[in-house]
Structures are given as C-alpha cells and as structure tokens.
Amino acid sequence: MNALMTRGGLFDDFFRDIAPGFYVKPLHGDGLPNPSQIKVDVKENGDSYIIHAEIPGVPKDDIHVAVDGNVVTLRAEVKQLDSTSEDEKTLRSERYYGAVSRSFQLAMDIDQSQAKAKYDNGVLTLTLPKKQAQSGSQRLTIE
C-alpha cells in the first residue's frame, strides 16, 4: 500500500524511457529532502570546530542555527512563491517547500559567545570555538 502512495517510480521511468520530454505531468513540488540531505563537513582544529553545510537556494534569513552545549541544530525553511500570468502555466515544478532540520553532537561543548556563522554561495560555514574547561579542581566544603 505504501508503494502506491509515493510519487515517481515505475510509471515515471516508463514514460521517461518511451517519450522523454513528451509526457509532462502537472505536479507541484516533490517531497521534502531527508535531513541527511543537508550535507555537512565537520573539521576540528586545536581550539574550535569548523562546519561547512550545503544549503543551496535558501536565503540566509531563513536559516537557523542553534547550539546547546555540544549539540548543533541546523534548520532551513524553503518558501515557494507562485506567480502566474494569463499567458503561461506551470507544467511541472520540482522545487520543494517546507522546512528541514538536522542535529548532530560534537565531542566538546561550544562557547556560544564566540561562535560565528557565515553564508556564501549556498554554503553555511560555522566556526564553533570549544568551551575551555575550568582549570583546576574546586574544593567542596564538607558539611
């Protein structure tokens, strides 16, 4: 039953093979990408983590980054704005809209006050300094 509910598959392949470009079905967007489709590279140097995340086609105002201890959450919201005119109609639209997010855990807590984010050409670059551990031990008073 689940196979009947998904788009694409056998019939799409059949029509693509028989008459490519002839069969154009009027769809409005495919499903949202999986969270794993936000591709990330995580690098570590002595005092920080450098993260590169591919989030193409999303304005920087619609990208949200949250850091909670050592957990980083990336969230992107894609908005689809439809515009139509009398002399044209949409035959197929494969661009999706909605929100997708991805969270991952790093080995050490992040110093949120020093964290930086930059978005350029569809790539989000995060510089996340490691939180320095308290040096020395603290003596507890025994009651």
Results as ranks from 00 to 15, higher is better:
residue 115 A to C: 09
residue 94 E to R: 12
residue 27 L to T: 11
residue 67 V to G: 04
residue 85 S to Y: 15
residue 28 H to F: 14
residue 50 I to F: 09
residue 100 V to F: 03
residue 43 K to N: 08
residue 36 S to N: 08
residue 87 D to N: 15
residue 46 G to I: 01
residue 95 R to K: 14
residue 122 G to P: 07
residue 24 V to M: 01
residue 109 D to L: 04
residue 114 Q to C: 10
residue 64 H to M: 10
residue 75 R to V: 09
residue 59 P to Y: 02
residue 99 A to D: 01
residue 124 L to P: 01
residue 113 S to C: 02
residue 103 S to L: 07
residue 46 G to H: 03
residue 87 D to Y: 10
residue 69 G to N: 09
residue 133 A to I: 13
residue 83 S to H: 07
residue 106 L to T: 15
residue 30 D to I: 12
residue 109 D to R: 04
residue 97 Y to D: 15
residue 95 R to W: 08
residue 25 K to C: 06
residue 100 V to I: 11
residue 50 I to M: 10
residue 26 P to S: 05
residue 123 V to L: 07
residue 82 D to Q: 11
residue 44 E to W: 02
residue 36 S to R: 13
residue 87 D to W: 13
residue 127 T to E: 15
residue 101 S to G: 08
residue 38 I to R: 00
residue 55 I to E: 10
residue 95 R to C: 10
residue 113 S to Q: 14
residue 32 L to M: 07
residue 41 D to M: 09
residue 59 P to R: 04
residue 97 Y to L: 04
residue 83 S to C: 12
residue 133 A to H: 05
residue 23 Y to A: 13
residue 51 I to D: 00
residue 29 G to P: 02
residue 20 P to M: 09
residue 70 N to C: 12
residue 62 D to P: 00
residue 119 Y to F: 15
residue 134 Q to I: 15
residue 75 R to T: 11
residue 82 D to N: 09
residue 117 A to H: 07
residue 100 V to S: 01
residue 63 I to D: 07
residue 46 G to R: 06
residue 38 I to V: 03
residue 130 K to C: 10
residue 33 P to T: 08
residue 62 D to A: 12
residue 61 D to S: 13
residue 36 S to V: 09
residue 50 I to G: 00
residue 37 Q to C: 02
residue 77 E to L: 03
residue 53 A to C: 02
residue 49 Y to M: 06
residue 72 V to N: 00
residue 82 D to S: 09
residue 103 S to K: 14
residue 29 G to V: 04
residue 119 Y to T: 15
residue 111 D to Y: 14
residue 16 R to S: 10
residue 66 A to I: 11
residue 17 D to K: 13
residue 61 D to A: 14
residue 54 E to P: 00
residue 52 H to E: 11
residue 74 L to R: 09
residue 17 D to E: 09
residue 87 D to M: 13
residue 102 R to Y: 14
residue 41 D to G: 06
residue 92 R to I: 06
residue 134 Q to Y: 11
residue 69 G to C: 05
residue 93 S to P: 02
residue 63 I to C: 11
residue 92 R to F: 04
residue 47 D to Q: 00
residue 40 V to L: 00
residue 126 L to K: 14
residue 94 E to F: 10
residue 33 P to G: 05
residue 47 D to F: 00
residue 88 E to Q: 11
